[in-house]
Design a protein around this nucleic acid. Structure first.
Lengths: 221, 221
DNA sequence: CTTAATAATACTGTATCCATAATTATGAAT
DNA sequence: ATTCATAATTATGGATACAGTATTATTAAG
């Protein structure tokens, strides 16, 4: 999975990362064709490392390789979201469970600090900031769970989810609601109630899916 | 576009599949160095598609790419197995739950048939046959679950598990025990008891881990 | 004016070649 | 004899070149 521990990353990895960012920022939109020559020229590299990077992104599910027809940014259907969110709910729920059991006093303090930050971003109405800190909080729980493979799987799925626009937080009241859910999750962890933490995290993810669905419905109308 | 003739898979995909088989069969052992030139020559191809195939295998976790130092078959530590099996237990448990709810009469019949086959392989003492049919049974449940992403994640993790030798079934009584567990799982599905199916499948996976650990302990001594 | 056939173009897939970094081998010095 | 330095070899990473196929454009026929 993560091969490069110390030595400098290979070029194809750097390219893969740059492409990921462009996909996440929707500069490269779902369904868009990826022009190998143009990108290689743009980056000042040859097609070889670029194509290797695309292979990596393909097995991450971010792009779709159609043999002899080129490479396209993956498009997620509503169906995919209906599959992925419950799966994430299951996995992140387990994370919360494990993390609650394994968190020491120092870990708890760190989580509290992260949540404080989240509160501040929310009161400031900084959507992007909130999104980032939210990510950090979930990441922290994954690390606390102590299961590297669990973390890996969640990270992979989260990358795929980033193919969709992340503006569900802009939905009226969603940010407030998300914050509230986080408060409860943290409270459960604080009280070492692993089962509750798991259930609350599970619900938190499904709640996120519901918000996204609501936006989608609104856009359709 | 004619529906019959699908575009032929690219060379790097074929190579990736051949390498997977060689890794799963342990012809390429964990920790072994992969000689690009030798393999390319052996397959009668250039290094380019071979290297692309290795990138794919690397993001599947089957090989580890050390920049400027080559490619090695991934070695799993006991720690990894301790991480992966509980995760698989969670995921396959969920699969069993969903599958139980969604299985129609025809699906049930198919599962029964698969289990029959499993019983036959067991009574015949055909370890490899048992292993294959066992795989088919789990695969059938994944498809019944109707969640493509859940199936995908399980498939990916199962590939990684295949890095370890699969001879835990050779452990005294393990085959019998595994068969017994399957009987109970199928019974729960037959009775549409999704919760039980989930719990039994969960236990089944952990039981598999225990058998592997027992073998490892025996080897150490 | 539409449609089919054919030619031109462009892009993907593969091979070959080159540069650079790493490993091994060789030799000298303590 | 052992160790360190340096040279030679080898393998990886990247660039370039080439072949084959899909797509588009063009032209001719109905």
């Amino acid at each position: 999975m993560s091969p490069g521990s110390i030595s400098q990353p290979a070029l194809y990895q750097e390219v893969a990362e740059r492409l990921r960012q462009r996909i996440f920022s929707h500069e490269l939109q779902p369904g868009a064709w990826i022009d190998e020559q143009a990108l290689a020229e743009q980056y000042g590299i040859s097609r070889t490392p670029l194509r290797e990077a695309l292979k990596v992104l393909a097995s991450e599910g971010l792009v779709t390789l159609k043999p002899r027809r080129g490479c396209y940014v993956t498009e997620l259907a509503e169906r995919d979201l209906d599959d992925i969110f419950p799966l994430m709910a299951l996995l992140e729920g387990r994370c919360a469970f494990e993390a609650t059991q394994k968190a020491g006093p120092a870990d708890l303090k760190r989580l509290e600090a992260l949540h404080e930050k989240l509160e501040r971003q929310a009161s400031r109405g900084d959507i992007n900031g909130f999104f980032e800190v939210n990510h950090d909080f979930h990441q922290a729980l994954q690390e606390l769970s102590g299961n590297r493979w669990l973390k890996q799987v969640i990270d992979d799925l989260r990358k795929v989810l980033k193919l969709t626009r992340r503006d569900s937080l802009r939905l009226e009241g969603r940010l407030k609601q998300s914050l509230e859910e986080h408060r409860h999750i943290l409270a459960a962890i604080r009280e070492r109630d692993a089962a509750s933490a798991e259930a609350l995290m599970h619900a938190h993810l499904l709640s996120g899916r519901a918000a996204l669905a609501k936006m989608h419905a609104a856009k359709q109308a």
